[in-house]
Design a protein around this nucleic acid. Sequence first.
DNA 1: GGAGTGACGCGGC
DNA 2: AGCCGCGCCACTC
Length: 108
Amino acid sequence: MKVKSDFFLQVYEIVRMVPRGRVTTYGAIAKAIGAPQSSRTVGYAMNASHSIPDVPAHRVVNRVGMLTGKHHFPGSDTMQRLLQEEGIEINDDCVVEFERLLWLPNTM
DNA sequence: GGAGTGACGCGGC
DNA sequence: AGCCGCGCCACTC
């Protein structure tokens, strides 16, 4: 069938695959879907992720490992707290050793 | 129907 | 070396 607006669903699936204690980037997800240029749309999809409880948006950060989306969470540091709960250290709203914790959907 | 936005990424200065 | 702006795709009003 045709991939119409599965974009959101694709993003949700990828984010859902992110192992606990690991983080991924919007660009990586977009690339995994096959639209590396739609990295922005990926973030947009996350906006609707609130409809899907299985989508740990807090594990998704930008390519620098910065919690850019933390501002969108209910609390002020909800995203940061969730990551810390998973064992991820956050320093200045940035994931410590982000590259080491980075998880690529293709490399799962 | 059209226009604007947006939780990004990259390049250029 | 840091800072700024532009572009892309998909969705919403």
